[in-house]
């Protein structure tokens, strides 16, 4: 019996549980997204009635949404802030994580442990002092005030430090023998090798920056909207247009999804960049 089935068929057969399990997980995961997308095309009343089929109210929802809200400006603000945070954060945190691991010393372990403490500070506690700090620097209301506190996060440093443990030291030594300077090794060898980690880090950082709500709404002057602030305003009135709300929420979810789709190829390719 066993000899009849080819090796290849056996391998495919072995993957069946994978398919079943992953399919169930996918369907469960995707259902609320489906609801959101469908609701964006329905009227407020239909959304409240949990209608699960697409309707014909998309254009109307869009008109209502843009009539009272400057969606374009909120999108732009959110986008510029999130991209700036992502780029700066990846640079600053990856070089720090690299420094911690590659030039490992006891002193650095101590510093890392201290920096980790910062991750555990609930944000609500530091908000008022941070607000005062930026006001004293005359940066209240500026986009920089939103960006700067989000650049260096212990979590990202830790992510890069942990990932660097798999960065082959032979490669490092070889590069040094080739006469590359330390920063050169980081830029030319480490960065391409760790593509998978960068891709994951970029996705996470962008997502957090994109959804950040508390801090922007405190440090930006009222009236400066980012997308999450706009969405919270949609539910602040007496009457909520649920169709329009779901459309806005859908718009707000798309960029992270796109970023993930674009970057996830790097997750897979990450390994091929490694020099063995």
């Amino acid at each position: 019996m066993i000899s009849v089935i080819s090796d290849k068929a056996k391998r495919i057969w072995r993957l069946v549980p994978n398919y079943v399990f992953l399919s169930i997980a996918s369907v469960v995961s995707i259902f609320p997204l489906y609801f959101m997308a469908v609701s964006a095309t329905n009227t407020s009343q239909e959304v409240l009635g949990s209608k699960l089929l697409p309707g014909g109210n998309l254009a109307e929802n869009w008109r209502n949404l843009v009539a009272n809200n400057d969606v374009g400006r909120a999108l732009l603000a959110s986008f510029v802030i999130a991209v700036a945070i992502t780029v700066l954060s990846l640079l600053v945190c990856s070089i720090a994580g690299y420094g911690f691991e590659i030039y490992h010393s006891k002193g650095k372990d101590v510093v890392m442990a201290i920096l980790l403490l910062a991750m555990m500070i609930p944000f609500a506690a530091t908000m008022i002092p941070l607000f005062q700090l930026f006001r004293n620097m005359h940066m209240y209301g500026s986009w920089f005030a939103v960006i700067i506190p989000a650049i260096s996060t212990p979590f990202m440093i830790l992510l890069f430090r942990q990932s660097s443990r798999n960065f082959p030291h032979e490669v490092l030594e070889a590069a040094r023998l080739d006469g590359l300077r330390e920063l050169g090794i980081f830029v030319r060898i480490y960065m391409p090798t760790m593509r998978a980690t960068y891709a994951a880090a970029a996705t996470i950082t962008f997502m957090n920056a994109w959804n950040n709500f508390m801090w922007p709404r405190v440090i930006l002057k009222p009236g400066t909207q980012t997308l999450p602030i706009l969405i919270s305003n949609l539910t602040a009135g007496y009457v909520t247009d649920y169709g329009g709300l779901m459309l806005a929420v859908l718009l707000a979810s798309l960029p992270t999804v796109v970023i993930f789709l674009v970057l996830q190829r790097s997750f897979a390719e990450g390994i091929t960049g490694a020099i063995k």
Partner: peptide, 24 residues
């Protein structure tokens, strides 16, 4: 006229009062 949700007005009142930012 600036659109600010009530929760945000309340948060701002507290923040301004705590940091003496009356002029904002």
């Amino acid at each position: 006229v600036v659109e600010v949700a009530w929760d945000d007005i309340q948060t701002n009142l507290i923040t301004y009062a705590q940091s003496g930012a009356i002029e904002e």
